[in-house]
Computed example of a mutant assay.
Amino acid sequence: MTLHARAAFLFVMLAAASPAAQAPPAPDLAALVAKAELVDLTHTFNETTLVWPTSDPMRLEKVADGVTAGGWYYASNIVHLTEHGGTHLDAPVHFAAGQTTADKVELSRLVGDAVVIDVSAQSAKDVDYLISVDDLRRWEATHGRISRGSRVLFRTGWSARWPDAVRYLGTALKGAEGVAQLHFPGLAPDLATFLVKERQISLVGIDTASMDRGQSTTFETHRILAAAGVPGLENLTNLDKLPARGAVLFALSMKVGGGSGGPLRAVAVVPR
Rank of each mutant, 00 (worst) to 15 (best):
M1L: 14
T221G: 00
T221C: 02
V33C: 13
F194K: 11
P163Y: 01
V111L: 12
E140K: 05
D56H: 13
L191P: 04
R155G: 04
A251Q: 00
W72N: 12
A69E: 14
F219N: 11
T237V: 03
D212G: 03
A160T: 15
L252S: 14
L81T: 07
P53L: 03
A192H: 01
G112H: 06
F250V: 09
A141F: 07
Q99I: 09
V269E: 04
R155M: 12
K125C: 11
L236Q: 00
A227R: 02
R245H: 03
V93C: 04
W158H: 06
T101I: 08
F9S: 10
G112Q: 03
G71F: 05
F95G: 00
L203S: 03
L41T: 01
L41Y: 04
E37G: 10
D113A: 15
A121S: 12
N77S: 14
V133Q: 11
G186L: 03
V256H: 14
G66T: 09
A16G: 12
A91L: 00
L182H: 00
P19G: 06
I78M: 14
T54M: 13
K174E: 06
V119A: 01
S216G: 12
A69T: 13
W162V: 12
V12R: 15
V105A: 00
A91W: 03
G205D: 04
A31Q: 07
A244M: 05
T237M: 04
R109N: 15
K197W: 09
G170W: 08
R151Y: 09
L136V: 12
R6K: 15
A23G: 07
T237C: 12
K174I: 00
A26G: 12
D28A: 07
A124N: 05
D118L: 06
L195E: 01
L153W: 05
A226S: 15
L41I: 09
K241W: 13
D65K: 10
V269Q: 12
F194Q: 07
D126W: 11
T42N: 04
A8D: 15
E47F: 14
T68A: 02
N238Y: 02
V127H: 08
M211P: 03
G144I: 08
